[in-house]
Simulated assay, not measured.
Amino acid sequence: MIAYIEGKVIKKSPTYLIVKNNGIGYAINTSLQSSSKIALNDEIALFITQIIKEDSNKLYGFLDDNERIFFEELIKINGIGPSTALALLSNLSVEELCRAISNENISIIIKAPGIGAKTAQRLILELKDKVLKLGFSTQSNALYEAAQALLALGFKNDNVQKALKDVNGDNVGELVKNALKKLS
């Protein structure tokens, strides 16, 4: 079983790489999240999930091991195969997907090709508890810091989470400012 590959990228398309390692070229499917950080001729290291079926043997590679772990959790869900899992991880980062699952935000999840409302509901149902158990962050660092600042000001956690749920901002200050408007 292949779990990790280091090598030079000799061919690249948006979701497909050929990585040369010791004279062998490995065909590796990848998400847009990982692929966007890789250039032709880069020396890279990928965490691999190998899926062997009766008629195929495919490699799925990720720059981040959390993305690989989440991919493996996604393909365990009935109705979500490797292609659909890659589509999800191509459209949403692991952090964004975890946040959507934790907040039960179906509208974000169904933006990925091949994901309908029923599949999104099943995904939320099966992964909501696992997201926390596996230690995936459901908030960006800025959101976390903004939440901590609002809690320090004396607001209750439930109110803080609701206020930050749909708040936009590029930094902690903006997030706190916009959340305070909602909390007032």
Rank of each mutant, 00 (worst) to 15 (best):
D166V: 13
K133I: 02
I106S: 01
S107L: 15
G114L: 07
Q161K: 15
D166C: 09
L123E: 00
I109A: 02
G169A: 14
G116M: 13
I108C: 05
K128G: 00
K118D: 04
T119M: 05
L97F: 05
L125W: 00
S102R: 15
I115T: 06
R122L: 03
N105P: 02
A147W: 06
L180Y: 08
L153A: 11
K181D: 06
Q161W: 11
K118M: 10
L127M: 04
A120M: 02
G173T: 10
K128R: 12
L132D: 03
T138M: 09
K111H: 08
K181Q: 13
E145F: 14
L150S: 10
G154T: 06
A142Y: 04
L151K: 14
S137R: 07
A147D: 10
Y144T: 06
L143V: 02
K182L: 07
A120D: 02
F155K: 11
K118E: 11
R122T: 03
L132A: 11
I108S: 06
L127Q: 01
A120G: 04
N141G: 08
N159Y: 14
L164Q: 09
Q139K: 09
D129E: 12
N141V: 06
T119A: 03
A120H: 04
V160R: 14
T119R: 05
K130N: 03
E95S: 13
D158I: 05
Q161V: 12
I101A: 04
E104Y: 04
I115K: 06
L143Q: 13
N168D: 05
K165V: 04
R122Q: 01
A152T: 05
Q161F: 11
N168V: 07
I108P: 01
A152R: 13
N168K: 14
A117T: 06
